[in-house]
Amino acid sequence: MSQYYEHYRKSSIGLALIDSLDELIQSGHINPQLAMRVLAQFDMSIAEAFGSSRVRNRVNFKAHLDNYRSLDDVWTFVLSNPTFRFEHDSVTAEKVKIVACKARVPGET
């Protein structure tokens, strides 16, 4: 199980799932153990979604780097005024935080 990253749980879709699970735990319909199982499955399903080339697009972005950190193979960047250029359009923002785990080399666990 540990070969799947858990940080995608902090995405919108992951947080929505956590909220839903929390509600079911609090109302007594499921136990935390089952919720963990669902989240572990979520990690796998996200990996599968990316791995099965459902997501193909590229992004280029430029930004000013305000802060950075690298710890245990996790890079964190805080950027200001990033511009993300997609294929057809671009998006700008004031600030963005990037949390990047080390990409797994195929075959390595």
């Binding site: 919108s12 997501v55 590229r58 780097l65 993300f84 923002a93």
Partner: peptide
């Protein structure tokens, strides 16, 4: 998975240049 200005975006690859 990116959340930018309240919208989600996904990318397969991204190149970033920071200063």
């Amino acid at each position: 998975i990116m959340l930018i200005n309240g919208r989600d975006y996904l990318f397969h690859k991204a190149n970033g240049d920071f200063e």
